[in-house]
Design a protein around this nucleic acid. Structure first.
Lengths: 331, 331
DNA sequence: TCATAGTTTGAAACGGGTTTCAAGTTGATA
DNA sequence: TATCAACTTGAAACCCGTTTCAAACTATGA
């Protein structure tokens, strides 16, 4: 691979001058500039990014740590962050770490060792904070809030309100027998959503009926089967997220239970697939675009935000589609 | 950030000795080793990955260039590659470039400048070859084959056979009036799939009926609407991939056309969503796992493969699910 | 006890782009 | 024409982990 010294030799100047031409960091005489430019074109020289970031101590790199690249929620987040980063001259390094706290920790260390300028973490592991607090670069959590706030910022939405909205909507749609498929309660969003549902039940004097299920398709299938056995009279289901809602629908469809006529169904997140599948899913919409954008802004503008534990909360909205309907109203 | 020289000072040894302890590249006396290890623990020292890869000229990094991170086909590929890479001590840098040849070229340049050890490209742009041929690192194309073979290797499957299988299956299921939603014909896989369909039509004396559509959800919706107007008697649809098949189903469902009773539907790829949605999609299965694994092997074992333009072709299989059924047979 | 082979160790060079600093130029003003 | 400011330029230091090379040291055999 050709290096800057060879380009300099070819142009008859010093490496410093070539660097100045490339980066526009100082004035260079027109004549030398032309010679340098010509040598660069002739050799297809591209500066070695590694040497650059070694000196600059910035790789123009933002790390994004997610539990699974196969989860459409996270790929939507990743896509937005990727596009924003490109606009601002950054690159994104995506780390798919599963639920493995150790992998998460290694990813964070690696990102620091790669001179990343900041990290966005979509994690459910509170322990990650220990490592995040140690590293010198800005770290923003998306979609979670931990009891002890040691990360620079937390971007999430009002999950509790979402849980309430979901329950209230099903009640408005005439459901008398609502079951909530709770997510794992160690996860902040799952807990808040459940609490929203629980409080609405109490206020309306409805019995609280729940099963617990991982945020994942397979678990959703199994839990729906179980739910139908445990609560045979169910007429409304709140799934802990859209992926689980889709698997719930799958079981209902297989059992020839009509949605929304016999059982109404609502999810959370409003991932793109929610409106792509048939029937389209009624869900609680998270402003994914705004959340991801905010998380990126916090990283990029980090010079300004000096305080720790900043919380940015976004509102959620109800998006009614085809898996719920007001009783008596025609489609 | 602490560096190796400070650790060395603390342990009372030279940086060279610290490096030797960390990497196990030479013998170090037990006493000094212990002092070094202790200093590393005390300071939480993690070697700067950038300085390392500058010297080594390898970042233990594999680039993966894909058109969209939101397309589940590519995230499945990415997931497999990510896991294989981790096993082999590599990291994966994912570049989402859209259909933008310029972005693709920049991604490739950046990867080279980042000292990547190899690149896997899932591209439909033949022009990328010019850049791929120039860079000094192994480049493997997945899912495509270009007329002029200038990339190190091409990993793809027998799309033509897939096209034939799809058409033959619909014929066996009693379809008389099959429409093929062709993908963009500049794309190798789309062209081969169409040709398979075309040849089967000719052999069976069926009329060849097609519309053309991008490999993308929105395009699929529009094209299905158009298809139904142009070919009102259609009883079987071959979609150019699963994503388009899912959008086709969406339109049929919306128009209360029963699948598979009135129209049978088959896709290509067998992405995970094909079996998650309801009804489950009949499709032509690509061995995604095997393809991605092979592509990675070609990169990792590159010392051995010296020749250019290696072609690795995998077979496809028919996976019958719920959107097709043999006429007369009961479910 | 001396010579030789083998081991341990650190100084210095290396990778490649960037930046500082001082020297060399040019041009304008007195 | 002499002087000083402003600009252009390259040598060298820098970022930091790795590796080479030669020096210093240990141990073995004669």
């Amino acid at each position: 691979m050709i290096n800057i010294r060879e380009v300099a030799k070819m142009a008859g100047v010093s490496p410093a001058t070539v660097s100045r031409v490339i980066n526009g960091t100082a004035r260079v005489s027109a004549e030398k500039r032309a010679r340098v430019l010509q040598a660069i074109t002739a050799t297809d020289f591209v500066p070695n990014e590694v040497a650059r970031s070694l000196y600059r101590k910035s790789a123009k790199l933002i790390g994004l740590i997610i539990p699974s690249i196969k989860n459409p929620y996270f790929t939507q987040v990743a896509s937005i962050i990727e596009h924003m980063a490109t606009e601002h001259g950054y690159r994104v390094f995506l780390c798919d770490v599963g639920d493995d706290i150790e992998k998460e920790e290694i990813a964070l260390q690696t990102l620091v060792a790669m001179n990343a300028d900041g990290v966005i973490i979509a994690s459910t592991n509170e322990a990650i904070q220990d490592y995040a607090a140690m590293c010198q670069i800005p770290v923003v959590a998306i979609d979670s809030l931990f009891a002890t706030k040691r990360i620079d910022a937390y971007v999430y939405c009002d999950y509790y309100a979402g849980g309430r909205m979901a329950a209230e909507h099903l009640i408005e749609c005439g459901c008398k027998n609502i079951v909530c498929i709770k997510g794992p309660q160690r996860i902040f969003s799952a807990k808040a959503r459940y609490e929203g549902y629980r409080d609405v039940c109490r206020e309306h004097g409805l019995r609280e009926q729940t099963v617990t299920c991982d945020y994942d398709f397979k678990a959703g299938l199994a839990m729906t089967e179980q739910l139908l056995e445990t609560f045979p009279g169910v007429d409304g289901i709140i799934a802990c997220n859209d992926v689980v809602a889709i698997s719930t629908y799958k079981i209902l469809h297989r059992k020839h239970i009509s949605v929304p006529d016999q059982i109404q169904l609502i999810g959370f997140d409003d991932i793109e697939w929610a409106s792509l599948i048939s029937p389209e899913l009624t869900t609680i919409t998270q402003p994914i675009q705004r959340m991801a954008t905010k998380a990126m802004e916090l990283i990029i503008d980090n010079e300004k935000t000096t305080e720790k534990g900043v919380e940015i909360v976004f509102p959620v909205t109800l998006t009614v589609r085809e898996t719920t309907k007001k009783k008596g109203s025609c489609k």
